[in-house]
Amino acid sequence: MTGLCLDRVSVVAGKSEILKAVSFSVAPGEIVGLIGPNGAGKSTAIRAALGLAKTSNGTVTVGGEPVAHMSGRDRARKLAYVPQGAPVHWPLTAERTVALGRIPHLHPWQELADADIEAVENAMRLTDSWGFRGRLITTLSGGERARVLLARTIAVGSQYLLADEPTASLDPEHQLQVMEIMQSQAKAGVGVVIVMHDLSLAMRTCHKLVLLNKGEILAKGTPDTVLTDENVAKAFNVKVARWSDGDSHYMTPHTSLGG
């Protein structure tokens, strides 16, 4: 059991089961995309992996060790989270915000050591945010802020990255930039899980896809086996057009199939 594994994980909210016995795994260096319509349980799946959503059944393990048995610090050093539209409650500088990612490595009263400061700088350079490290997070544009928050997650130096729609609210250039960063993290051996809506981007950047619908897995595997016309119609209720440009394959929804 290597990698991050969700084994028959269920989550109950109120009286309804919003995640039903979902299993998938992420190996080090692999990018897994979680796709599906709104309310399919994509975010819930990564929240369950992080211990943010209480599981009613099933286990989450990293390298065979159940996450539920780990200390908070241990878990934090293995799994880092890029939340969707995260708040920053105080006007901290970009650099200080990124430095918060080093908390799992520090004792409560410990100051940042040189290694921590280096990790912060590397993460900021990688996300192209080093140039405005001294600016307050409140004065940054949406794209700059998203990059700082991504750098914050990368600064953890975790084995796995779990990102909830990291490209939402970004312009096309920054969407591509974020996916390139995810790819470079995977190349460095980090296992990456990304919740995403852009099927074309998912098809081109992910090694594996997990298609969720109504809390259940409809299909999982390589992008071409998952994103068939039939699966897309069933999950999203749309017809898609496809085309290729050399080795790159694209698809875009063009007709709603209606009720």
Partner: peptide, 14 residues
Amino acid sequence: NALSLGSETAHTLG
């Protein structure tokens, strides 16, 4: 400090 990023992120920071 961790709470500056919201309670969920603070949880994921351990």
